[in-house]
Simulated scan of single mutants.
Amino acid sequence: MAQAELPADCTARPIDPDTDLPAVQHLVNTCERALDGTATTDAGALAAVLARPGLDPAADTLLVHTGDGRLVGWAWTDRRTDADVHPDYRGRGLGTALLRWIEQRARERGTAELAQIVPDRDPAATALLTAHGFRADVTSWLLAIDLAGLPADLPPAPEGLTVRPFRAGDPADEQAAHRLTEDAFDEWQQRRKDFDEWAANTVRRPAFAADRSPLAFADGHLVGAALALDLPDTGEGYVETVAVHAGHRHRGIARHLLRHTFHACRAAGLRSCTLWTHSATGALDLYLKAGMTVRHSSTVLKKTLA
């Protein structure tokens, strides 16, 4: 079993999903605030990580505590990987120790390639991974729009289209949205997510905002969806997923759905709305034309394991 080589005053153990999530969220949010001034990771996002098919929390996660019980680092690995070190504890080799544990555990699992998203505004993390053989793969962008500048009224829907909000807890909406989004992303995603994994990240996540998540129908069939989250600590709306059926693209459906979400966020008293996209999707121009601007970027770094 993989073991981490830690500073002398630290100990390591796997996460206990029943008791450790609040402390892990606090650590992750502390790291986010140190980097960006705001925290965006909610408990539902961390729970979805631990529920990834094939991830065993007892073997594929690691928590690092100081002698007084303070959580100062954590990591997980399952094809994708991630690690966080408390800002007060950086520069002591803990990040290197976590990275070595990640690679050792990945080799035990038989993982062929690791992938980690690193903010471009964190050059120390980028330098650490590149020094250990990771290479840049694709770029991700966080885009935002100032909701105060929106037109007062929504434009009319594209011809032949009807739009309504997602019906929270409706199995029909959930299953249809799952099929639509997984079909739409088949072109570039590494694997299809089954319904339970997909739902844990979207419609069954506690932060899911059904009233800000419009669905577009043509002839009674779902052809587009924009699925939004409520992240109240940020004061912003967030779009988790935008998807349009391949046979209905280039009709302005995605842009129209975004406008619905933007207006719903403004009606909820939010000042702005954000979303992530990356270079493999080719969707950056869509969001720029919808009035969004790039706030900052990240790079997906990958390493092939021997």
Rank of each mutant, 00 (worst) to 15 (best):
Q3A: 14
E5Q: 07
P7H: 01
R13F: 13
P14Q: 13
P17D: 05
P17C: 09
L21P: 05
L21H: 04
H26C: 13
L27N: 02
C31W: 01
R33L: 13
A34S: 11
G37R: 11
G37K: 10
T41R: 01
D42I: 04
G44Q: 03
V49C: 00
V49Q: 03
L50M: 11
R52N: 00
G54E: 05
L55I: 14
A59T: 09
A59Y: 09
D60P: 07
T61H: 03
L63S: 12
L63W: 12
D68Q: 07
D68V: 07
R70V: 09
L71N: 01
G73M: 01
G73W: 03
T77L: 15
R79S: 14
H86P: 02
R90P: 12
G95D: 04
T96M: 11
A97I: 13
W101V: 05
A106C: 10
R109C: 12
R109E: 08
D120I: 15
D122K: 10
L129D: 11
T130L: 08
A131H: 14
A136S: 10
S140E: 03
L142C: 09
L143T: 09
A144H: 14
I145G: 01
G149Y: 11
L150I: 08
L150G: 06
D153T: 15
L154A: 01
P156W: 07
P158C: 03
E159Y: 01
T162G: 03
V163H: 03
R164E: 05
R167D: 01
A168Q: 14
G169W: 08
D170V: 03
A172S: 09
Q175H: 14
D183Q: 08
R191G: 08
R191F: 12
K193D: 12
K193P: 05
D196R: 12
D196N: 03
A199R: 01
T202W: 00
F208A: 01
F208I: 12
D211Y: 10
D211R: 08
S213G: 05
S213D: 06
P214N: 00
G220T: 15
V223S: 06
A225T: 04
L227E: 01
L229M: 13
D233W: 10
D233A: 15
T234W: 04
G237Y: 04
E240G: 08
A243Y: 12
V244C: 04
H256P: 03
L257E: 02
R259M: 11
S272D: 14
C273Q: 14
T274D: 07
L275A: 02
W276K: 09
T277P: 08
H278C: 15
A280C: 09
A283Y: 07
L286N: 07
L286A: 06
Y287A: 13
Y287P: 01
T293M: 02
V294H: 10
S298K: 02
T299S: 04
V300C: 10
L301T: 00
